[in-house]
């Protein structure tokens, strides 16, 4: 997963540098691009359109980003493995966020299926991924609350870890890669309009159309 994501970042950055290098006009509206990027990295102002869907999506994202990184148990693992450590959130908050993650994951799927436009766009993985993401959260919640857990502790922990591993593998291979590519997408779109000069003539040569009447 780490290698996959690093590859994404390296490839994207080098592609973008190539694009700027080839572009005839190197005057890129970086400030505008940066503003658009920040707007969507922290999309609090963008909730009015499709209000419920947006709120659900925002809560979902916050929960699945915060809990895995700031759960005390996870930080303890990092510390024993690498010596790194950072402040944790309380387990109570983690519980609330975990329930939020699971609930919003289910809601996202329901909303996706319920609205005709998103239904028309959706592929199998658009339904499967949120549910798959919910699995380690459900299992993790049961691990944290053994008294409510009808299954064996070891089995639940195994499901928790293995499902999370599956997700980590899937991240670079699926649309989940937006977790590292999102900061770059606005810039990529902008650079797309920065054409290399003479590209049209080269294409015409390739296709044997140079000098042909229109």
């Amino acid at each position: 997963m780490v290698l996959g994501l690093i590859r994404h970042i390296v490839v994207t950055v080098s592609e973008m540098m190539k694009m700027v290098g080839r572009a005839g006009n190197k005057d890129v509206a970086y400030r505008q691009v940066f503003a658009a990027t920040m707007k969507w990295l922290f999309p609090v102002g963008q909730l009015r359109q499709r209000f419920f869907f947006s709120i659900t999506s925002l809560m979902f994202h916050v929960a699945i980003i915060v809990v895995p990184i700031f759960l005390a148990g996870h930080i303890a693992l990092w510390k024993s493995g690498t010596g790194l450590s950072w402040p944790a959130i309380s387990n109570g908050l983690a519980d609330v966020l975990t329930i939020t993650a699971v609930a919003t994951a289910v809601l996202l799927v329901v909303q996706r299926a319920a609205a005709r436009d998103s239904r028309a766009l959706s592929r199998f993985n658009d339904y499967a991924l949120p549910l798959l993401i919910a699995v380690p959260f459900v299992a993790g919640f049961l691990v944290m609350h053994p008294t409510w857990n009808p299954f064996s502790y070891e089995l639940t922990l195994l499901v928790h870890i293995m499902s999370a591993n599956v997700l980590l593998i899937l991240i670079p291979l699926t649309k989940l890669s937006h977790m590292v590519l999102l900061p770059a997408t606005q810039l990529v779109s902008e650079l797309g309009w920065h054409f290399p000069p003479d590209a049209g003539r080269k294409v015409a040569v390739d296709l044997g159309k140079e000098g042909q009447p229109i």
């Binding site: 359109q49 658009d126 649309k175 990529v188 294409v203 390739d206």
Partner: peptide, 30 residues
């Protein structure tokens, strides 16, 4: 033509990124 345009133009990285990250959220529909 597509191959040639990708070779000489700047569209390749754009399509690559789009096809990876497009989340099909349908916000654009609205």
């Amino acid at each position: 033509a597509f191959g040639s345009v990708l070779k000489h133009g700047n569209y390749g990285a754009v399509l690559d990124t789009y096809s990876r990250v497009s989340a099909k959220c349908a916000r654009c529909a609205a």
